[in-house]
Design a protein around this nucleic acid. Structure first.
Lengths: 144, 144
DNA sequence: TCCATAGCCTATTTATTCGATAGGGATAAT
DNA sequence: ATTATCCCTATCGAATAAATAGGCTATGGA
């Protein structure tokens, strides 16, 4: 897993679309790119992935653009990260042996951390991210 | 942050050294590499970093090898990851603006996750990793 | 004393990935 | 028909990870 700018761009773009969707407007790639200061060609690829993951709806042609498929409160951060494969799930090295040190590292470190990340991002929504200062302190995201 | 094989090699090697240290034995690069199935030249670089971080002590020459600098219960996973700069701290993209979406993403996502990772690895020790099945369920590692 | 055995250190190679760029195609509104 | 927009794939450059290579230094034993 990585905290990539791609993930950040995706989240920012979705938030941008969300805000305009609420006002019944579509947001175009170029508009978003300008507002959020992102390469519009790179953003294009990102929006493509978000659409293929059914997070946004695209309309082609003139007067086209993007809107959210569902309200921002129904979009979880994990949805976005998964869609962009900036996935929470790191590529945990395969473990061949059934037990032993490698196994412990996988079970007690990599998998636990991945799990905690997933829990947290499963819980948090785009809507929460948009609202100022809403960090879910109650997240209760244990490393179980 | 990444779950690199380098970090895994480092942890495995330290555990290997720990086990031999307990029996008053030194472990050499080549022995460890063979036992743990790691490129010994790559392992050499890793052990170098671990020594420079004062996690292991090296003796040169014939009959040389490595021993732990302190007991495994005093070595925290974060010590190892930091030493190998497979640091828990992801390179969180800089945020220029004081507030806004980017800020929220940094504060509510990247920083929180980093914090949780750090907490967890600060808490867990090499000794716990070595013992079979000791996953600290009580870690109480919140995303606060 | 000499030499084999270890660690020490830096440079280089290879493969992969991230961010970005490029360019042509499809579609819908005007 | 033209224009604006999304669609899709290929490619590039830089950075990084993993591994390889090779020479240097120190230590203990023959």
């Amino acid at each position: 897993m990585k905290f990539t700018t791609k993930a950040e761009y995706g989240l920012v773009a979705l938030a941008d679309i969300a805000i305009h969707s609420e006002q019944g407007e579509k947001a175009t790639t170029i508009e978003i790119a300008q507002r959020q200061n992102i390469s519009h060609k790179y953003l294009e690829q990102i929006l493509l992935q978000l659409r293929q993951a059914n997070l946004i709806r695209a309309s082609k042609g003139q007067k086209g653009g993007y809107t959210l498929m569902r309200p921002a409160s129904g979009i979880h951060i994990s949805d976005v990260l998964n869609a962009l494969d900036s996935s929470i799930l790191a590529d945990v090295p395969e473990v061949d042996s059934v037990s032993g040190l490698r196994r412990n590292i996988k079970d007690c470190l990599w998998d636990k951390m991945n799990g905690a990340m997933r829990d947290y991002t499963d819980r948090m929504t785009l809507a929460e991210l948009i609202e100022q200062g809403i960090c879910p302190d109650d997240a209760g995201c244990y490393m179980i």
